[in-house]
Amino acid sequence: MLRSTALSLLLLSAAATGANAQGLRGETDINAGLKATATAVELSDNCPGVNARLLRGINYLRQLEQMAKDRGYSQSEIDAYVDSRKDKKRLEAEARAELSAKGAVEGDRESYCKVARAEMAEGSAIGRLLR
């Protein structure tokens, strides 16, 4: 009985501090938002006619941070995830792969501009972060 009570308390505690067993890495919607932000930055870096909407991007990142907090992640967990070089590289690689799948070719600025214009016209999460 004591053992099952202790196990129940442990499970409740785990649920309250980071809802996903994988941590923030497993939060697909938050990661999709981070990837959209990375993709928008990549597009603005490679297309001279497109700029990232910095204030909108900052507000979007704050919304993602609040989502993580609402799910029980602490500020230190969020900071550790955001500062993780491994996770940054993973998200950047995913963003580049998505851009490639959409027709962006490294070194071909016009291909990045074409993707950027399509994202803006579609009103996608990426497109809303560009102007």
Rank of each mutant, 00 (worst) to 15 (best):
E98A: 08
R71T: 09
E119D: 05
N46H: 15
I78P: 02
E65R: 12
A32R: 07
L99E: 05
D45M: 12
E122N: 02
E42S: 09
A38Q: 13
A21N: 02
A16F: 11
T17G: 07
G123R: 03
M120H: 06
R85A: 10
E122P: 02
E92V: 10
I58F: 12
R25W: 09
L11W: 10
A16P: 07
G127D: 00
R56H: 09
G107K: 00
K86H: 03
A15C: 15
T39Y: 09
V105H: 04
S100R: 09
G18I: 12
V82M: 10
E94N: 03
R25H: 10
V105P: 01
R62M: 14
S100L: 09
L10P: 06
A116Q: 02
A121N: 05
V82Q: 06
D108G: 02
E110G: 00
D108E: 11
L2A: 14
R131F: 01
K88N: 08
A16T: 13
Y60G: 03
L9M: 10
V50D: 08
M67L: 09
A116M: 01
E98W: 05
L129R: 04
L99S: 00
I78R: 04
L10N: 08
L11G: 03
T5C: 05
S44E: 08
C47R: 00
A40K: 03
E106T: 03
A121C: 03
R128I: 04
G26A: 05
I78S: 06
A101C: 06
A40T: 07
L61K: 05
G26N: 05
A121R: 01
